[in-house]
Computed example of a mutant assay.
Amino acid sequence: MNDAQPLVRFSGVQKSYDGEQLAVRALDLDIRRGEFLSLLGPSGSGKTTTLMMLAGFESPTAGEIFLDGQPITRTPPHQRNFGMVFQNYALFPHLTVGQNLAYPLSVRKVPRAEQAERVRKALAMVRLSGLEERRPASLSGGQQQRVALARALVFNPRLVLMDEPLGALDKQLREQLQIELKELHHQLGLSFVYVTHDQGEALTMSDRVAVFNQGAIEQLADVQALYETPANRFVAGFVGDSTVLGGTLQGSGACCALQLPDGRRLPGVNVNHAAPGTRAEACIRPERIALRTAATPQGPALDATVARVIYHGDHLRLLCAIAPGQALATVKLPLTGAGAHPQAGDAVQLQFPPEAMRIYACAASPP
């Protein structure tokens, strides 16, 4: 098999439930062999519909889905050999853990002796060895989700599909399982496709992320590129925290400046090559904004007033007022333990590195 060929390809795929509105529109997407790909987006953006079409639980209205170059659009779900993990676990309550894991093997006519060995290995893989005789109801939520994952892996699937599998768990357990899932992905070398609306989760686990909005992919990129260089205003606002400043675009080409309503100018990157004079918004990450001090006088800066100070344990977040009508600027300030930190009401100067200021033309208002 040619490794350059994607494992899965969506070609011109559309999906409509009512014949009028498109839940997914003109989707072209390649899923690479062995990658962890997250489908990220708000509710109703088309990410779960895309996963359900890949699983075979939904059929495209138009277009084709290919697996290893062969069309699978009309292949029933049980013939695709994909593992599936749901948010609600979907375990059989009347069966033991071992029987839950053995079920997909018995359906595939795997000999009983081999079933027992595969179940043992799958439970060891998710750190649940020795729980074969327990019932799902006697397990914690985290343990039940590990059982569901083991069941999705026990029959050696070609692809593992996950629909917000950690959404029902508390924050600490969710973060722990994120790390375990990523480690398991590295060990197995399988392709994982993971649906989530949590951008932190997507950044933690993924090799690449497809950001969905209104049935289309706004950007598909590796996690660093997605965070550092959002392709448009939607991605910049949906992935990570940003300070957003409004004004008018000045200058042409890739390098330009945002002119605030009071006349102050901030140099930045004209992401979509908008024309001079266009209404625009600049987005910058909290950790990229710096407080000007005597030791760092260089670079563009704005006078501001600290409105609120929020303690986050390892850092402070300063919410700073820049001008009437502008959103508060968020500054992430590491806690070093040395020296006094700004307090509410203090006057400060904020520095905005031009390479970190990404400027986008505002969307046209509907007529």
Rank of each mutant, 00 (worst) to 15 (best):
N232P: 08
N88T: 11
K332I: 08
E132A: 12
S206C: 04
A102C: 08
D18F: 03
Y227Q: 07
P286M: 12
A275G: 12
G240V: 01
K182N: 14
H94K: 05
R33G: 11
V8M: 10
Q178S: 11
L159P: 07
L260Y: 03
N88E: 13
K15I: 06
L67S: 14
A62Y: 03
L350H: 08
E114P: 00
N81D: 13
Q343N: 01
F66H: 13
A282D: 03
L350K: 08
L123S: 11
G277S: 11
P286C: 05
A347C: 12
G345D: 10
G141Q: 12
A294S: 13
T305F: 05
Q176K: 15
Q178I: 05
Q176L: 14
H312I: 07
Q144T: 04
E183T: 14
G268C: 14
I179T: 14
R265S: 13
L291I: 05
S106Q: 15
S45C: 03
D241S: 15
L128R: 01
A23E: 03
H197E: 01
L149V: 15
L105V: 09
H185K: 09
G200D: 02
L177H: 02
V271I: 13
R134V: 08
I31Y: 07
R32V: 11
T96D: 03
Q21M: 04
L37P: 05
E228T: 10
H273S: 12
A290G: 07
I310N: 09
Y194Q: 10
E201K: 04
D3Q: 11
E218L: 04
V154K: 00
T196M: 02
M1Y: 13
G41M: 02
G339P: 00
P77V: 07
G200W: 02
Q214V: 02
L188R: 13
G189T: 07
A168C: 09
G142S: 09
F155V: 08
A148I: 00
E175A: 15
A221W: 01
S11D: 07
D346I: 02
L184H: 05
K109R: 14
R208G: 03
V154H: 00
L350Y: 08
E201V: 05
M162G: 08
G41E: 01
S16M: 05
